[in-house]
Amino acid sequence: MPSETPQAEVGPTGCPHRSGPHSAKGSLEKGSPEDKEAKEPLWIRPDAPSRCTWQLGRPASESPHHHTAPAKSPKILPDILKKIGDTPMVRINKIGKKFGLKCELLAKCEFFNAGGSVKDRISLRMIEDAERDGTLKPGDTIIEPTSGNTGIGLALAAAVRGYRCIIVMPEKMSSEKVDVLRALGAEIVRTPTNARFDSPESHVGVAWRLKNEIPNSHILDQYRNASNPLAHYDTTADEILQQCDGKLDMLVASVGTGGTITGIARKLKEKCPGCRIIGVDPEGSILAEPEELNQTEQTTYEVEGIGYDFIPTVLDRTVVDKWFKSNDEEAFTFARMLIAQEGLLCGGSAGSTVAVAVKAAQELQEGQRCVVILPDSVRNYMTKFLSDRWMLQKGFLKEEDLTEKKPWWWHLRVQELGLSAPLTVLPTITCGHTIEILREKGFDQAPVVDEAGVILGMVTLGNMLSSLLAGKVQPSDQVGKVIYKQFKQIRLTDTLGRLSHILEMDHFALVV
């Protein structure tokens, strides 16, 4: 994948999101292997301009796509893939009243899908469409860049269908997702969380590099694949309309690839034109409109599966009536509230959605109805927002919020430890010299600072030695090549209790 991002070429006709291997024109390309080798690009942008032909009021008969309808489940399912879809609609009884809503608040519980998330729908649909058009064949390999849930859905379907599955996901995604993927037989590649989507090191860039190296491999490409919004247009939206008897006044959905909100909203605009569509985008993402909503100094966020630093091709923002931004604290607070007060075992993005819903639905009156999409299960986040310690460490809970008995030293300040200034190293000294210094002084790690004293990161003896043994660096290389740029900081005025929580999850903390 090139470091400079080429513009994806656009073909003359058809839909841009065809499933299957992508040609340089962004659509299915038939021909000899030699032709494909000559024409197939190194990668295709996940934010390529959409060429979708959908228009409100256009006859369904003019759609270029294969459409399906929700099917009634048999008493005995032939395999677990038949437990994807037909998820329950559940009334939220307490939270709406707590925040003064007059309307009825309903939750579409997508964590009841077989793999635990709304992404099971698009995973199965992308595979079925690729099999139907002859792209996927027995023994082929599926590769997908994902925040985890699409990966789980694909790995689940691949396990049943017999495909090899490789999932490329950023490091910030939970260990629970990784464990589930491994249990399903998927191979996992992790990428830096802070890598831009168009960087060769991003999950998108690495996935395309693997595709170019592995024979008979395919990126189904949830960011561009029409099967993504079509899955929701054909099934999720129809289920909502049936469950609500066609009567709903507002739908609120958090947005990642945009397939969920695009597919549902398009069908609702056709069948229930008075329904307002509300999009939820986390602070630090750029999906919301108008652009002024996205202006923030924050560039990272903890909530998973929603928000991006690019506009995915499948996201149709014209069908969203209003956007709201959400933050991590309210997302996790509301997710825990949904679990504790409503018994809905949902993930953090569901918290984002409901946090926005109780604001947006203030305009609705008694007798009206708001539906929220709860995308995934708490299963993926047992060591994250479900953990009091994690919430404390991230600053989303305060010590006084917890009532468990603490040891005698818990409320003492870090400054009472009488710490001395640490050994520091410059980023320009060599790895070999740094190892000598650390061994001589008896230290395992040291902060790396520039000549102005600005902290650049941390270097550890173990990481340097393993990097040297693996051949990633040489003793003569500058130590700046092996620094940890993500590390926890703590102030002298913070409590030892807070430091204790940090050290339970990290090997060190830097006192500043």
Score class of each variant (00 low, 15 high):
Lys75Cys: 11
Lys119Gly: 02
Glu201Gly: 14
His218Glu: 03
Val189Leu: 12
Glu171Thr: 06
Glu213Ala: 11
Phe99Met: 13
Thr257Lys: 01
Ala158Ser: 07
Thr13Val: 09
Pro74Ala: 14
Ser73Ala: 15
Ala48Trp: 08
Glu270Leu: 10
Glu37Phe: 12
Ala107Lys: 03
Gly185Val: 03
Cys103Arg: 03
Pro21Gly: 06
Ser147Phe: 01
Ser3Cys: 10
Asp249Leu: 02
Pro2Met: 15
Thr191His: 00
Pro2Lys: 12
Pro16Lys: 11
Ser117Cys: 01
Lys211Tyr: 06
Arg18Leu: 09
Phe99Ala: 14
Pro64Asn: 07
Thr191Trp: 00
Val168Ile: 07
Ala207Ser: 08
Leu184His: 02
Asp238Ala: 10
Gly258Ala: 01
Leu56Trp: 09
Glu104Lys: 14
Gly31Gln: 03
Ile143His: 00
Ser147Gly: 05
Val10His: 02
Gly100Leu: 04
Ala130Lys: 00
Tyr223Phe: 07
Val168Ser: 04
Phe111Ile: 04
Thr141Leu: 14
Pro59Thr: 11
Ala159Thr: 15
Gly185Lys: 06
Pro78Trp: 05
Ile142Asn: 02
Leu56Ser: 10
Trp43Tyr: 15
Glu270Tyr: 09
Pro2Trp: 12
Asn216Cys: 14
Lys75Ile: 04
Val178Gly: 09
Ile240Arg: 00
Lys271His: 13
Arg276Pro: 10
His22Glu: 12
Arg18Cys: 04
Met169Trp: 05
Ser117Gln: 05
Asp35His: 13
Pro192Asp: 05
Cys52Thr: 03
Ala24Arg: 10
Arg58Cys: 07
Tyr163Glu: 01
Pro229Phe: 04
Cys103His: 03
Ile92Gly: 05
Gly11Glu: 10
Arg190Gln: 06
Val90Thr: 07
Thr141Glu: 04
Glu176Gly: 06
Pro16Met: 09
Arg58Gln: 14
Gly162Thr: 05
Arg190Gly: 03
Glu144Trp: 04
Gly153Ser: 04
His17Tyr: 13
Asp198Cys: 12
Arg266Asp: 06
Arg132Cys: 14
Leu105Thr: 05
Glu128Met: 12
Tyr223Gln: 01
Glu37Lys: 13
Gly246His: 05
Gln7Gly: 09
Lys102Thr: 08
Ile240Trp: 00
Lys172Thr: 05
Ser199Thr: 10
Gly153Tyr: 00
Gly26Val: 14
Gly115Trp: 07
